[in-house]
Design a protein around this nucleic acid. Structure first.
Lengths: 197, 197
DNA sequence: GTCTATAAGCAGATAGAC
DNA sequence: GTCTATCTGCTTATAGAC
């Protein structure tokens, strides 16, 4: 169906299609780094091209528009998509906390950096949060479940922002385990059923 | 010392200086609204002028640069500056929570909207957070005080973002009191002394 | 004192040379 | 197939007419 690339030069190590795919990947990687650092508006096609060591026109050739470049840069292959399983409450939360505090995939940070000023990024973050929220809400149960889930997600979001995007010293220098340990009772209080007044 | 404005026209209700100050205030108000809505980069001098019903050149005449306009727009008169007193821990926290969840002064939201993409805004937010953090840290005491305080501030920040800037439904529709009620045990767990293992 | 007109620069996107 | 050169539009900021 036209996907087969005939090898015209057996001594050439990589086909043109392969080289092209490699270049696209390098551009995406550069774009991810710059979007993470400066956000959507302040990241220029020219800067991405320079970072990737290619011509600006080549970036347009590959992705058409800056918008599409961003979309591709913040789209995960299919793996993470926020710890997908059916785990149980606290483990789920600490999992999210671990993921968000640990490496925090480059795609996530690139997305979060622009969420307050680039409407499409905001929409994606809302969607991701809604998915997390439904998982947590279902695990909590009760009247306040949705509110509690929303507060939990927002709390984790705030810590991620403080640590990775704002760079608050006390959060940058603390270890992941330490933070998780301190946050655990807090998250339990937030997700546990409230005692009767 | 030249500050006295002689009244040349007794029948004129306002002096020129007064009218000028009024116009400046209207420009600042318009700027605050647009900075809050769209952030620093996407807010143009032209749009601010249009919103205030004045000429773009007049905005420059008053504030010189866009940078200075932003600085003036997010500078509070002197009052709030984050509930300044010497209150006691939980009350302090709920106070901050109340302030952040309630009206959240326009200046604060304008500042928060740009904190991830406009370096000067980020610096201001870090500074404000540090002040809060020191208050809370002092009230907590103990080894983890600073970390706990940082996590507390980040938590409140996350909720403010989710509610007012991202517009998460579950947080927008919930009442301030309800949120405070649900968050109280969580904040107590975060700021209370940890039980010995 | 206020606004028209314009300068100067940079963005994303396009067309055509090689 | 890749890059040079350019187009078009929009920004902040300035200079000068009224």
């Amino acid at each position: 169906m036209g996907t087969v690339v005939p090898v015209t030069r057996p001594d050439e190590p990589l086909s043109r299609a392969q080289r092209r795919a490699q270049t696209a990947e390098r551009i995406l990687s550069a774009a991810r780094a710059l979007f993470t650092e400066s956000g959507y508006d302040r990241t220029t096609i020219r800067a991405v091209a320079a970072e990737a060591g290619v011509d600006p026109a080549l970036v347009m050739q590959h992705f058409g528009t800056k918008d599409e470049l961003f979309r591709r840069a913040i789209t995960v292959s299919s793996e993470e998509a926020m710890g997908g399983g059916e785990e149980k409450l606290v483990e789920l939360l600490l999992g999210i906390l671990g993921v968000k505090l640990g490496e925090v995939s480059g795609t996530s940070l690139a997305l979060l950096r622009s969420m307050l000023t680039y409407p499409e990024a905001a929409e994606q973050v809302r969607a991701a949060n809604t998915r997390q929220l439904e998982q947590i809400s279902g695990a909590i149960g009760g009247d306040d479940a949705e509110l509690r889930a929303a507060l939990t997600v927002s709390t984790l979001l705030g810590i991620t922002i403080g640590r990775h995007l704002l760079g608050l010293d006390q959060l940058r220098t603390a270890g992941t385990d330490h933070i998780a340990e301190v946050m655990k009772p807090c998250l339990e209080a937030l997700t546990g059923r409230q005692p009767p007044p």
